[in-house]
Design a protein around this nucleic acid. Structure first.
Lengths: 198, 198, 198, 198
DNA sequence: AATGAATGAGGTTTCATTCAT
DNA sequence: GATGAATGAAACCTCATTCAT
């Protein structure tokens, strides 16, 4: 009874439900989504959901947990490909934009529900935190390299960077014409590094 | 039947309900809030809510409409106090941080629900859009003055700036110790103008 | 507090409310009608209704009471104009059709709600009963005259006659093209007197 | 979401709910009946009702649809048993009285609510219409046989006959002592065929 | 493990009625 | 007497969750 996900034997079905759920959440929003609709979309019975997830909240939590790890793994890998701070920062931003562009449902749910999640128990170390840490490392490296200013409030700058990228994604999500999100990577990196001043 | 808010004659009660609603929304999230709880907090009967608002959604819409105008008015006024682009940008950021710091309930609801609102009919020109316009003006001015780079993707930069400030507020909201939000204004402005590069 | 209608001082307003109520009942049905709508249509405040009527049911009861007397008075007068049973019967049917044709709202409410009224306290001697008595008298007269058969189950025939006229009115009410109801009087009387057999 | 009755798999439960509903409707009237009361009487949970019916209206509609067909089937069969118009008419009237006598709840609901049903969408060809058609056929046959007058306004006579039988049933329903309804069949037929004139 | 019918708590909303003005 | 804002009971209905099969 502890963790249904443990008992569950069919990982394929687990993922099918998770995908169905996210796509329903993306369409309707978490609170307007029904278990029934998710079950139908996943091609399982309503009750089956509860063999894999504790309850509706749990689905969202699993999603965050799962996607967060997966996406963060990608980010980390991309960051590691470069060896200086500028390169790493650029790679992170590009990966960030690309990943969200490639999975629109995920993007919608992250944008719309991630801030609701605090109303649930937050036992997940969420993407934001891991992102902050990653940017923090890059900033430190840049300062060590001497390519980034040493007088930065890095705690603040980390958040500013995430927020900026986040809002660009958000705008893209709600734009009518779907331009290519990833192409903004360079301009964003340039903005972060050089600012808007002459 | 038209617009309950029109019929309603007691503006004091209208505001009491609105304030109560926002505080409940802030505590519980919009979807977990009940009319009953709002009514109790406002000191009115459940049915009374419906003399002033069409339904639960309508309360949130009224809030966005009302707060958006009010907050944006403040932003505009603060921006007008300065006469060069840097001064205006700094004033905007400072006002933004200050306003949200001064009304925590508003801040929570804006952060948590503003993105849900797209699931409703959005007939309001929302804060984000007005904010973008305001920053857009400042950027143009700065470019005209020669204090801001002329090679900016201003559409992108606008969004990045809002997103950055937004995320700083968001982090503050969920921090356990409540430091002073406004004190980050200078560091943020510095970040936007000079970037992180040496 | 006993009978609001006693307290009421403005008979003009009493009738205005009654008329408004009947027209709303006719449009929406009794149960779907609201006091608010009646009040608006009568041009009075909601609360004013309760100065003239005990409650919503009471309005319908007053209507039945009032209309019944009025309509029955007309019936009686028309019946009295003829001096033989056939003439009286013809006059009754004609008056019945004419009265309902002339006041469509009344007709609708009688048809749709009169059978619901048994769910209320029935302290009124309703139109049906008075109608039965009237037809009963005519039947007896005809039998005394020797123009009507003496082997009739008069109790049954009374009801059959009312029912027949009633259903003709009912069909007329729901017909799309509004022909003249009254013109069926002779055919109905002929049917009652001579039957359909050769 | 389509048609709950389709989804429902337990026909026994469907009928149990329908019967319970009709008996509650008969006791309280449609508008005064609550889903809760129906559910309790049917021995199911409130929510279960909605697995079988779209809503309260839908229950009534299903009843009319279902009972109408069933009762009309009986009428048709009885009419077919006789081969001349008089016999058919007599059989129809007798069947009509018998059916309603045998199912008092049905009778009450038909009498009290059938005219309310027009406030709902009426997608059913209702009993009245089918009845009219049946009587129409009998009248035509009688005229062809030469046993019924050829100068009848058959449209009118059809309605008169239904109305007459209907009102006899109605009176019976509200009478305190429950005599046998069916015994009026001959007198009614006699009245329709020979009229009241000598 | 999988199903999906059944449950029933709980939410939103309506509206007849009251009562302070 | 007239008003109409306020009340709050009560109804409908939804849907997450359970559990017998």
């Amino acid at each position: 009874m502890k963790d249904p996900a443990q008992r569950a034997v069919n990982p394929e079905k687990y993922h099918r439900i998770l995908e169905a759920a996210i796509s329903v959440f993306a369409e309707e929003g978490f609170f307007n989504s029904t278990i029934s609709r998710i079950a139908r979309k996943a091609g399982v019975a309503d009750g089956t959901i509860y063999l894999y997830f504790k309850n509706k909240n749990d689905i969202l939590l699993h999603f965050f947990n799962y996607k967060t790890r997966q996406v963060f793994g990608t980010f980390r890998k991309e960051v590691d490909k470069a060896h200086d701070a500028r390169g790493k920062l650029g790679n992170l931003i590009r990966a960030h934009l690309r990943e969200f562009q490639n999975d629109r449902n995920m993007a919608v749910v992250f944008q719309a529900e991630a801030r609701q999640i605090r109303y649930f128990e937050v036992y997940i170390k969420d993407l934001a935190t891991m992102y902050f840490d990653l940017v923090g490392e890059i900033l430190e490296l840049g300062q060590k390299e001497g390519t980034f200013r040493s007088d930065l409030d890095t705690g603040l700058v980390k958040r500013a960077i995430l927020g900026a990228v986040d809002e660009v994604i958000n705008t893209w999500l709600h734009a009518s014409k779907k331009h290519v999100l990833e192409k903004h990577a360079d301009a964003l990196a340039d903005f972060f590094i050089n600012g808007i001043g002459v």
